[in-house]
Nucleic acid binder design. Structure first.
Length: 652
RNA sequence: GCGCCCGUAGCUCAGCUGGAUAGAGCGUUUGGCUACGAACCAAAAGGUCAGAGGUUCGAAUCCUCUCGGGCGUACCA
């Protein structure tokens, strides 16, 4: 609601400035520093001062005189050196809210968001969790604002990481495909691989000559032939299911899983390779360290080109000298497909049913009966990938540009975020040995190769156990099974909020104590507010009373009387800003901003809860008004939680 | 070397395209449960926005430099 008024006023004022002064500019609409100044502030007079060579205050006066009445605005005041402060018509505003005025703003274009994208060779860790939570929340935000979104989780099942684990099983531990298949049926196969990967990485480090195993395995995988290739499929497919299960615990699901093996076997890469060669986007290096490799010149993706006399080679290898394509090469083909530019498509088969309404599809190289939705061919593509890979994302975009798909390159958005590292304190708690050098650092980077990190499922388990203690403490009358479900919801809320409270370009120094917190700015705080709000309404009905017909009882005059109480007006204003908060967070591409709004909303409710005993209110009109506020709060808190992917428990 | 990011309260972090007295949570101190559940609320203390220049009516925000930290610059991803 607030959002509508804001936009309306922005348009009116900017039209006025264009007509009156011939100035076309983005009119800023701000919130005044102090709520006592009103609800909206326009610094337009400052923006105009230079162009008109007049004192801001004089311009402000002129604007007030010329603008006349603004819709929904009761009063315009000039403040400071030339601010225009607007006060809304409270009664009218309340009535519009009661009538349920809403706004929408979908683009109509299909948006693809790729996230999670974990190498299927080991268990997911907290870094992957940040990716998935960020991606999933962004998707929910887009959908809440009306966009059509397709969620892709790319499976790199032919890469070096999978090859290393397979090489470890085969060469180092002499395991057969049947033996590995048996292992996948054991619980926590992903944990087993976590250790196996660390072992083989260590072995490679100590025996560099054995790295030929890796090349042999990669070759077998690319050719899709023999026991090594088969084992790679067995391992990757099993791990993917583990990852899906882990993410499902947090309410994260996908539409389609495009696999790298199909990028190869359905000749996506071969097609892209031909295009890249034809357009001379890449060339065959004939000398130097990269002789025999197909490379892309650095000038395609770097602003800064190395100096001539500098013998630094800044080109990027796309196809290795042994003929095996790199990840980036395959990613270029994949990106082309995402935009529908490759002229090829995957075959799809249903992988699993997340719910009766939702099937997750996976790519396959075999013909399938019809029935799969149409995937790919997006207008905008968001790749949720950590910032360390920005160089690779630049190469991918450069690939599109080199093929003269400049617009698509522009709409290829690297939704980047900083890594999750470990705080030294947490390392000590987890029994991770630190070098003296690491002890001095603010944080320690996790490393899959070293097996150093916090596994996602371990963290979730830990959170559930901790939440269960709290739930048990307060709800001994409830069934044990139900209490565990509630504890799980609280754990999910705590974890998702924790991953979202930091803005994207902040490195999270993961601290177990902080992640396990349920008080203060946390998910459970927001959940608690939502639970208490709905509890008031249930209690009210349990007493045999029924909610009044708000539209009838709360007339404009009644609303004006009630909203004359300053803190109630401020509170209503806060609740009504939900849509504006979502729009702003989307514009900024910062889920953290929306999380912050949800927290503020919860804070607003807690204060309201403390200050106004709704059910015990004696005055009938005031009580009706408070009940309406409570209902509105309850609705908006639930809406905000839904966007954050945080479940709402029945009790806590 | 080059590129990108960061430096704001004791700690962890917000701070919108420059705008009014720089905010939040945690921690500390103090107060509030016989009113819809205290996983809550109220109050207090706590700042040279790393430093120095510059642009501007106005700078935490933009520009330049310096210092400190991180990441990238792979025939890993």
């Amino acid at each position: 609601m607030f959002h509508i008024i804001e936009k309306q006023i922005q348009r009116i004022v900017s039209d006025h400035l264009a007509a009156r002064y011939g100035e076309t500019m983005a009119v800023a609409v701000e919130s005044p520093k102090q709520s006592s100044f009103g609800e909206l502030a326009l610094p337009a007079a400052f923006q105009l001062a230079r162009a008109l060579k007049k004192a801001p205050r004089a311009i402000a006066q002129e604007l007030v005189d010329d603008l006349g009445a603004l819709p929904g605005v009761a009063k315009i005041e000039i403040a400071g050196n030339g601010y225009l402060n607007l006060r809304l018509d409270r009664g009218g505003y309340g009535q519009a809210l009661l009538a349920g005025v809403a706004d929408a703003g979908a683009t109509g274009h299909k948006i693809i968001v790729e996230h999670t994208n974990i190498n299927p060779n080991k268990a997911a860790h907290i870094g992957h969790l940040r990716n998935a939570v960020l991606g999933d929340t962004f998707v929910r935000m887009l959908r809440a604002s009306g966009d059509a979104v397709e969620v892709q989780n790319y499976i790199d099942n032919t890469g070096v990481q999978v090859a290393d684990v397979v090489a470890g099983f085969h060469f180092l531990e002499n395991k057969s495909v049947a033996e590995v298949t048996a292992l996948t049926r054991e619980p926590r196969f992903d944990y087993l691989c976590w250790d196996a990967y660390a072992r083989v990485s260590q072995y490679f480090k100590e025996h560099p000559e054995s790295e030929k195993w890796r090349a042999e395995t990669l070759h077998a995988i690319e050719a899709n032939d023999g026991a090594l290739a088969e084992m790679a499929h067995v391992v990757a497919d099993a791990i993917v299911l583990c990852h899906l299960a882990t993410m499902r615990r947090l309410g994260i699901i996908y539409d389609v899983l495009p696999r790298e093996s199909e990028i190869l076997h359905l000749k996506f890469w071969a097609t892209a390779f031909e295009l890249l060669k034809q357009r001379e986007a890449i060339y065959l290096a004939e000398e130097g360290k990269k002789a025999g490799c197909w490379v892309m010149a650095g000038s395609h993706f770097r602003d800064h080109v190395a100096a001539e006399d500098d013998d630094v080679d800044d080109s990027k290898v796309i196809v290795r000298s042994n003929g095996i394509v790199t990840y980036v090469g395959k990613d270029i083909a994949y990106q082309l497909w995402k935009f529908g530019l490759l002229g090829k498509d995957f075959h799809y088969r249903p992988l699993l049913e997340e719910s009766p309404e939702h099937t997750v599809w996976v790519s396959t190289d075999e013909e399938q009966p019809a029935g799969a939705p149409k995937f790919g061919a997006g207008y905008t593509v968001y790749n949720v990938i950590d910032s360390r890979q920005s160089y690779l994302q630049d190469v991918v975009a450069a690939g599109l540009r080199a093929l003269s798909y400049g617009e698509q390159a522009e709409r290829s958005i690297h939704f980047s975020y900083e890594m999750v590292a470990l705080s030294p304190r947490t390392c000590v708690e987890l029994g991770i040995e630190l070098s003296d050098e690491d002890k001095k650092r603010a944080y320690v980077e996790v490393s899959g190769r070293k097996g150093l990190g916090v596994k996602a499922d371990d963290l979730i388990d830990k959170l559930i156990e901790k939440a269960l203690v709290e739930v048990d403490d307060r709800n001994q009358d409830k069934p044990a099974e139900e209490r565990r479900r509630v504890a799980t919801q609280i754990a999910t809320g705590a974890l998702r909020y924790f991953m979202l409270k930091f803005t994207r370009n902040t490195v999270i120094a993961f601290d177990l104590q902080e992640a396990l917190a349920f008080v203060g700015e946390t998910g459970p705080y927001v959940q608690y507010a939502a639970v208490r709000a709905s509890k008031i309404l249930t209690k009210f009905e349990e007493r045999g009373e029924r909610l009044p017909d708000f539209a009838a009882v709360l007339t404009k005059e009644a609303l004006e009387r009630q909203l004359a109480t300053e803190d109630l007006w401020q509170t209503l204003l806060l609740i009504s800003k939900a849509q504006a908060a979502l729009a702003e967070a989307l514009a900024k591409g910062e889920p953290a901003h929306f999380a912050k709004y949800a927290f503020q909303l919860a804070q607003g409710f807690s204060v309201f809860y403390d200050g106004y005993p709704v059910i015990h209110e004696q005055d009938a009109e005031r009580r009706a008004f408070l009940l309406w506020m409570t209902q509105y709060f309850s609705k908006q808190l639930a809406w905000a939680l839904g966007i954050l992917g945080i479940p709402m428990p029945e009790y806590m």
